[in-house]
Simulated scan of single mutants.
Amino acid sequence: MCEAIRYSFRGPPKFVMQCCCKDCQKATGTGHTTIVGIDRAQLQITGEPRTYTVLGDSGNGVIRHFCGTCASRLYTMSAMSDTLVMIQSGTLDDPNMVTPECVIYKKDALAWDRFDPALPTFDALPPDPAT
Protein backbone atom coordinates (compact mmCIF):
# COMPACT_ATOMS: atom_id res chain seq x y z
CA MET A 1 0.00 0.00 0.00
CA CYS A 2 2.67 2.53 1.01
CA GLU A 3 5.28 1.00 -1.36
CA ALA A 4 8.02 0.97 1.31
CA ILE A 5 8.42 -2.66 0.24
CA ARG A 6 8.15 -3.72 -3.38
CA TYR A 7 8.28 -7.22 -4.77
CA SER A 8 7.84 -9.13 -7.98
CA PHE A 9 8.11 -12.74 -8.99
CA ARG A 10 9.27 -14.40 -12.17
CA GLY A 11 7.71 -17.39 -13.83
CA PRO A 12 4.39 -19.10 -13.30
CA PRO A 13 3.03 -19.73 -9.81
CA LYS A 14 2.99 -23.27 -8.44
CA PHE A 15 -0.64 -22.77 -7.36
CA VAL A 16 -3.33 -20.17 -6.70
CA MET A 17 -5.77 -21.08 -3.92
CA GLN A 18 -8.54 -19.43 -1.97
CA CYS A 19 -7.89 -20.26 1.69
CA CYS A 20 -10.72 -20.23 4.24
CA CYS A 21 -8.68 -21.27 7.30
CA LYS A 22 -9.40 -19.42 10.52
CA ASP A 23 -5.88 -17.92 10.54
CA CYS A 24 -6.42 -16.34 7.09
CA GLN A 25 -9.85 -15.09 8.17
CA LYS A 26 -8.42 -13.38 11.24
CA ALA A 27 -5.33 -12.05 9.46
CA THR A 28 -7.35 -10.51 6.60
CA GLY A 29 -10.56 -9.59 8.39
CA THR A 30 -12.71 -11.36 5.80
CA GLY A 31 -13.92 -14.82 4.80
CA HIS A 32 -10.88 -15.99 2.85
CA THR A 33 -7.68 -14.91 1.18
CA THR A 34 -6.30 -15.81 -2.22
CA ILE A 35 -2.73 -17.09 -2.00
CA VAL A 36 -0.23 -17.45 -4.82
CA GLY A 37 2.38 -20.15 -4.21
CA ILE A 38 5.84 -19.60 -5.66
CA ASP A 39 9.37 -20.85 -5.04
CA ARG A 40 11.48 -18.50 -2.90
CA ALA A 41 13.94 -18.25 -5.81
CA GLN A 42 11.20 -16.62 -7.94
CA LEU A 43 10.77 -13.72 -5.49
CA GLN A 44 12.59 -10.42 -5.86
CA ILE A 45 12.02 -7.99 -3.02
CA THR A 46 13.22 -4.50 -2.12
CA GLY A 47 12.86 -3.40 1.48
CA GLU A 48 12.91 -5.49 4.62
CA PRO A 49 9.60 -7.01 5.73
CA ARG A 50 8.85 -7.56 9.39
CA THR A 51 7.58 -10.94 10.52
CA TYR A 52 5.09 -12.41 12.95
CA THR A 53 4.82 -16.15 13.60
CA VAL A 54 1.69 -18.06 14.61
CA LEU A 55 0.88 -21.79 14.79
CA GLY A 56 -0.99 -23.13 11.78
CA ASP A 57 -3.56 -25.91 11.59
CA SER A 58 -0.68 -28.36 11.12
CA GLY A 59 0.89 -27.28 14.41
CA ASN A 60 3.85 -25.79 12.52
CA GLY A 61 4.85 -22.15 12.51
CA VAL A 62 3.31 -19.86 9.91
CA ILE A 63 5.51 -16.82 9.33
CA ARG A 64 3.64 -13.74 8.14
CA HIS A 65 5.75 -11.15 6.33
CA PHE A 66 4.38 -7.62 6.38
CA CYS A 67 5.37 -4.01 5.80
CA GLY A 68 6.72 -2.40 8.96
CA THR A 69 5.47 1.00 7.78
CA CYS A 70 1.83 0.38 6.81
CA ALA A 71 1.43 -3.21 8.16
CA SER A 72 0.19 -4.64 4.84
CA ARG A 73 0.46 -8.42 4.88
CA LEU A 74 2.64 -9.36 1.91
CA TYR A 75 3.36 -13.07 2.00
CA THR A 76 3.49 -16.09 4.26
CA MET A 77 5.99 -18.89 4.67
CA SER A 78 5.94 -22.11 6.68
CA ALA A 79 8.55 -22.67 9.38
CA MET A 80 8.85 -26.16 7.83
CA SER A 81 10.05 -24.85 4.44
CA ASP A 82 12.23 -21.94 3.46
CA THR A 83 11.50 -22.48 -0.23
CA LEU A 84 7.71 -22.00 -0.54
CA VAL A 85 6.32 -18.46 -0.47
CA MET A 86 2.56 -17.77 -0.42
CA ILE A 87 1.88 -14.26 -1.68
CA GLN A 88 -1.33 -12.45 -0.75
CA SER A 89 -2.85 -11.85 -4.19
CA GLY A 90 -4.36 -8.53 -3.13
CA THR A 91 -0.85 -7.10 -2.77
CA LEU A 92 -0.01 -7.74 -6.43
CA ASP A 93 0.13 -4.67 -8.67
CA ASP A 94 -2.41 -6.52 -10.82
CA PRO A 95 -4.34 -9.12 -8.80
CA ASN A 96 -6.17 -10.15 -12.00
CA MET A 97 -2.94 -11.71 -13.27
CA VAL A 98 -3.81 -14.84 -11.24
CA THR A 99 -6.90 -17.03 -11.16
CA PRO A 100 -7.84 -19.28 -8.22
CA GLU A 101 -7.60 -23.00 -8.98
CA CYS A 102 -9.24 -24.39 -5.85
CA VAL A 103 -10.63 -23.58 -2.40
CA ILE A 104 -8.84 -24.96 0.68
CA TYR A 105 -9.97 -25.25 4.29
CA LYS A 106 -13.56 -25.21 3.10
CA LYS A 107 -14.50 -26.76 6.47
CA ASP A 108 -13.81 -23.33 8.01
CA ALA A 109 -15.63 -21.30 5.32
CA LEU A 110 -18.11 -18.75 6.60
CA ALA A 111 -21.74 -19.27 5.59
CA TRP A 112 -21.90 -15.89 3.82
CA ASP A 113 -18.66 -16.27 1.81
CA ARG A 114 -19.06 -17.28 -1.85
CA PHE A 115 -16.79 -19.13 -4.28
CA ASP A 116 -16.87 -20.11 -7.92
CA PRO A 117 -18.84 -23.39 -7.83
CA ALA A 118 -16.63 -24.75 -10.63
CA LEU A 119 -13.57 -24.73 -8.36
CA PRO A 120 -12.59 -27.94 -6.60
CA THR A 121 -12.82 -27.67 -2.80
CA PHE A 122 -10.87 -29.35 -0.02
CA ASP A 123 -11.75 -29.48 3.68
CA ALA A 124 -8.07 -28.88 4.49
CA LEU A 125 -5.00 -28.90 2.22
CA PRO A 126 -5.24 -30.73 -1.11
CA PRO A 127 -3.32 -34.02 -1.40
CA ASP A 128 -0.70 -32.20 -3.49
CA PRO A 129 -0.44 -28.48 -2.58
CA ALA A 130 0.93 -27.78 -6.06
CA THR A 131 -2.49 -28.57 -7.61
Rank of each mutant, 00 (worst) to 15 (best):
S81V: 02
L55S: 02
T46V: 15
R64I: 07
I38A: 07
G37H: 00
P95R: 07
V62Y: 14
P129W: 11
M77R: 04
K107A: 13
R50Y: 07
G90S: 01
D93L: 06
I104E: 10
S81N: 10
I38C: 10
V36I: 13
G59V: 00
L43E: 03
A41N: 14
K106L: 13
C70T: 04
R40S: 02
R50G: 04
K106E: 07
A71Q: 10
D93T: 09
S89F: 05
V103F: 07
P49G: 08
V62L: 15
A41L: 02
Q44M: 05
V54G: 13
S78E: 10
S58G: 14
W112Y: 10
D128G: 10
A79Y: 05
Y52W: 08
F115N: 05
S89P: 08
F66R: 06
D108K: 03
D113V: 12
T34H: 04
Q44Y: 03
G56S: 12
A111S: 15
Q88W: 06
T51I: 03
G37E: 03
K107Y: 09
A109L: 02
M97R: 13
S89V: 06
G31C: 11
T91Y: 01
I35Y: 12
N96Q: 15
E101W: 02
T46F: 12
G59K: 05
L119H: 00
T53L: 12
P95I: 02
A118V: 11
T83S: 06
R40Q: 08
P49Y: 05
A124T: 14
T121I: 02
M86A: 09
W112T: 08
S78M: 04
A71Y: 04
K106M: 13
P129H: 06
N60R: 10
S81L: 07
T53P: 03
D116I: 03
D39P: 09
V54Y: 15
V98Q: 05
C70D: 11
C67D: 10
D94E: 02
G61R: 15
A124F: 14
P120Y: 08
V85F: 04
P126V: 04
P117W: 05
G90D: 11
A118R: 15
T33A: 04
P117G: 11
M77K: 08
E48S: 14
W112A: 01
P95W: 04
R114K: 14
V103M: 03
M86S: 12
G59P: 09
L125S: 12
E48F: 01
P117F: 02
Y52A: 06
S72L: 03
L110T: 08
I87H: 10
H32V: 07
T51S: 07
P120K: 07
V54H: 15
P127M: 09
L119I: 00
G56W: 04
C67M: 07
E101G: 02
R73T: 11
T76Q: 07
F122S: 06
A41C: 06
A71C: 09
A109T: 03
I87S: 09
N96M: 12
G90W: 03
Q88L: 12
D113L: 01
Q42N: 15
N60W: 05
T121Q: 05
P120V: 01
I87F: 11
D39A: 06
D116M: 01
D94N: 11
L74T: 03
H32A: 13
T99F: 03
D123H: 14
S72Y: 00
T33Y: 01
S72V: 02
A79I: 00
S81M: 12
L119G: 01
N60V: 01
K106Y: 14
L125Q: 11
D116Q: 08
P120Q: 09
